[in-house]
Design a protein around this nucleic acid. Structure first.
Lengths: 247, 247
DNA sequence: TAACAGGGTTTCATAGAGTGAAACGGATTA
DNA sequence: TAATCCGTTTCACTCTATGAAACCCTGTTA
């Protein structure tokens, strides 16, 4: 049962160090060593390398490490003109203006989902959504959309992943996904965060492949279950229109 | 004369692979191997590692590599609330509205400068500036500001850097920097790019340390030398106001 | 149809690169 | 002055990253 990994350990470790900065923006060397479970001297060398290439910098005042400008440089080249997160922005803004709630766009990345675009509601009480956030695929309306409408192979692969939460009853969850598949959209009510609710619909490209989930989220007192089902047709239609904009 | 490098070679190479994506967004394995000068199999392993951690992905259609969503995740945590690029945005927009030219914010990163923020002119013909761009420190108004007002140690270190363009006459350049230091701002006319001109002024934080250069740039027929000197006081004043906003 | 070319993938022996324990140094606090 | 708590440096050992070569595709040329 030998798992042949064709990866480079030192690089894996360095990238794990970088990923520490996905939660919180400033860490000391020892803190990072604790987080990734490696010896101080190892982290020291990795950080020196990352710093040399501009991926991290040391804050002059606090002496702690933070992300460097190379990340900025790379992120500038992330979105291309045919990128969904750019192409779909106008339609997202239109939908936001129509419903006046926060609109997010999620894609699946292995066994998680990533928010690749968001436009905020204008209301005083609103869902605040940061682009780039990485969330579990096990809860939330968009998660269920990303699983329900995925290729069957993807769905079963994710559900049988060892990292999948064990307490979640697979039978019931799979049943729920089938219902969503039939309904064409998903809702969640205080599922991931108390006080928050969301409706999500799938976006397919022209060749019928699931590319993203479009979600409308807000406080649960405004987005009641009734209200969400009322919104659903508009969201499904908007998601459909977005699909036709993609290759 | 052994330079003791305390960095990790494999990680350096992996980061160099990532930095390939700072120019152009899509590369094949062999192309990358050519760019960084390593063997195909080495690049293959490094890319597999980067892909495993979500730093690159393969485009399903073209089979080429491009940046992954982990970059997006990290870039979301780049700008903090006390980040100049966020703090100074309103004032940059105000200045743009006043002069109706493109406004950029540059910081020095070792022997280069990086555009950390930009707001575009509304005119039909305008300077288009992408955030994150990395430019040489040897030409352009902002470059000269970043050097002229830097600590003397920094200035001489950069000017004597082996990578500094040899044809540039150091004497004359140093003289020019001193003039800029006296004037309080710098201009450049078709210096880096034909048809483009710029004025730049230094931004100091409350403790008097140079933190960034504020630049106004546009087509050289609008930004004539005369016009730039006319604009200068407004730009210097705006830069000064920005400085008071920073810690 | 065979030969070729140009991408990506896999294997493998070898050297030398990365590793972590421990010791060191420099702050800050008791 | 002792005691912490970081970050830095050193060093012997082992394991890991390396690149040459061979291999596998798919598409192109003769």
């Amino acid at each position: 049962m030998e798992e042949e990994k064709k990866t480079v350990r030192a690089v894996e470790r360095a990238l794990d160090v970088l990923l520490c900065f996905a939660s919180g923006h400033e860490w000391g060397l020892t803190e990072i060593a604790g987080k990734v479970g490696l010896h101080k001297s190892t982290i020291h060398r990795l950080l020196a390398t990352l710093e040399d290439r501009g991926f991290v910098t040391r804050d002059p005042s606090t002496e702690k490490y933070r992300l460097g400008l190379s990340i900025l440089e790379l992120s500038a080249h992330l979105s291309r003109s045919d990128d969904p997160s750019v192409m779909l922005l106008p339609e997202m803004e239109r939908l936001r203006d129509q419903l006046n709630e926060t609109i997010s766009l999620y894609v699946r990345d292995r066994t998680e989902r990533v928010r690749i675009q968001a436009v905020q509601s204008m209301q005083a009480i609103r869902r605040v959504a940061t682009v780039g956030a990485r969330l579990p695929l096990s809860v939330g309306a968009s998660s269920k959309v990303l699983l329900a409408f995925a290729d069957p192979g993807v769905r079963s692969a994710v559900l049988t992943d060892p990292a999948w939460p064990a307490q979640l009853e697979r039978e019931a969850f799979a049943k729920q996904l089938d219902d969503i598949l039939a309904a064409g959209y998903a809702t969640s009510f205080e599922e991931r965060e108390p006080g928050a609710a969301a409706v999500a619909a799938p976006i397919f490209n022209r060749s019928g492949k699931l590319v993203a989930a479009l979600s409308v989220s807000g406080p649960s007192n405004r987005l009641t279950p009734d209200r969400m089902h009322e919104f659903a047709p508009a969201i499904v239609e908007s998601a459909h229109r977005m699909g036709t904009m993609l290759g």
